[in-house]
Design a protein around this nucleic acid. Structure first.
Lengths: 132, 132
DNA sequence: TTGATATATTCCCATAACGGAATATACTCG
DNA sequence: CGAGTATATTCCGTTATGGGAATATATCAA
């Protein structure tokens, strides 16, 4: 089995930094035409059109014609699965208690490892917990 | 330029569903050895080890030896860039006003499209600028 | 119509993915 | 030591990428 295609999921689509830049540029709800994106990205126009094609296929952006321009707009709800997934880990950097607990558990493990490694040395009490 | 490597960023690393599953399995702070992950994922052991190698390279997981086992643990802080990025779009599904506004704008566009499609019926003035 | 502008599509190529299969390494036990 | 278990690494083949270059399509303008 080869690598999953960029259009196989939103996660794959946004793995590419240029495509995240495009998404960022549409984050204010503004519509932008391709030329504007080309100028901001500094990429050749065909490359930008191809990235937009990927974003279109996963539903992250929508287009509509306006004269000879194509106006792209963000479809933010398609980003929700990413949000929902990452949200499961938010506590690790949001919840003080959780992170303190994490750190404590980790320190406990490291100390255990140290003790084991240093058990042929002098078992000095290194338990100076600086707190916070 | 070819596709960016899976270890080029956390975004690329978590684009792969199996790797997200691994991350999920470590989300509770437990350490797991490779065999446990193999059993849960239903993948051959070498495949799992390779995925773990990717996660290691981007710093998403850390290992430490315990006898002949390798215990893997999550490094949640490495997920923060993803969280920070996606957070910029949270308002779209959190803020009621914003989503209502979005829906309204979209409906307006659809109506415009309808009007245009139906304009071969009655020659209506097509220059109805909705002023958005 | 002809020409110019805006965007998409196609072909090419170097790169690298992912899983399969086989093998290598590391540690434990007897 | 050798056998067995746990994990990592290497080689392979299929697949798809992303940009470059050239071209196709669509729309406007004169």
């Amino acid at each position: 089995m080869a690598r999953a295609g960029t259009t196989s999921s939103v996660f794959n689509a946004i793995a590419e930094p240029r495509r995240r830049e495009i998404v960022d540029m549409l984050a204010f709800g503004d519509e932008r035409d391709v030329t504007q994106l080309v100028l901001k990205l500094g990429l050749p126009q065909p490359a930008v059109s191809k990235h937009l094609g990927v974003l279109r296929k996963v539903g992250l952006v929508a287009v509509h014609k306006a004269g000879q321009r194509r106006l792209y707009r963000l479809n933010p709800q398609e980003l929700k699965p990413v949000h929902d997934w990452i949200q499961n880990f938010e506590r690790f950097w949001t919840d003080q208690l959780a992170s303190i607990k994490e750190a404590a558990e980790q320190k406990a493990k490291q100390c255990a490892a140290h003790d084991r490694a240093a058990s042929n040395h002098q078992p000095h009490s290194k338990e100076q917990d600086h707190g916070h």
